[in-house]
């Protein structure tokens, strides 16, 4: 029995080194791993707040109609009623934040209407389409059509 522990130092010393190493690992882990890691799952819970705090660019249709009630009235009764303002006018959250400082530009009509209404075999059959070159020879659509409430 005594002989068994004769050279025990060979075991105890590496065991101490291992233990110390484990201790260092625990200390580093406690410092490095964020407190909120694992709150909901294997990720940092704070990331959710970080992502949801990003600023928005599109204000949303309901914001536009708060001021532009005339346009909303015309637009709401026509074929474009379900097309949101910013679908054509672009992102305008800056404009709703400060209407005077950030005045939106008018849309580029030459490309705007064509992107939706240019004739293409891949478009749904019932969707109103037109071969723009043959139809208007390059004349802008809003010369004849009222974009907020288009009549055919």
């Amino acid at each position: 029995m005594g002989r068994l522990f004769q050279n025990a130092g060979h075991l105890i010393r590496p065991a101490l080194v291992l233990l110390a190493g484990f201790g260092v690992f625990l200390v580093i882990r406690a410092v490095v791993v964020p407190k909120d890691f694992g709150e909901y799952g294997h990720y940092r819970a704070g990331a959710l707040d970080m992502i949801s705090a990003r600023p928005i660019s599109y204000a949303g249709h309901s914001q536009c109609v708060l001021c532009h009630d005339q346009e909303a009235k015309v637009h709401g009764g026509g074929k474009h009623a379900n097309v949101a303002c910013e679908a054509c006018h672009g992102p305008l959250a800056k404009h709703t934040d400060d209407p005077t400082a950030n005045v939106p530009k008018l849309p580029d009509v030459a490309n705007l209407c064509r992107r939706c209404h240019e004739k293409d075999a891949a478009k749904p059959k019932g969707f109103p389409q037109v071969d723009t070159v043959a139809h208007s020879q390059g004349m802008l659509c809003n010369n004849c059509h009222q974009p907020h409430n288009p009549q055919l």
Binding site: S57, G60, H80, N82, A87
Partner: peptide, 8 residues
Amino acid sequence: ACCESCPT
């Protein structure tokens, strides 16, 4: 944003 701007 994609749903907001989808015209159809």
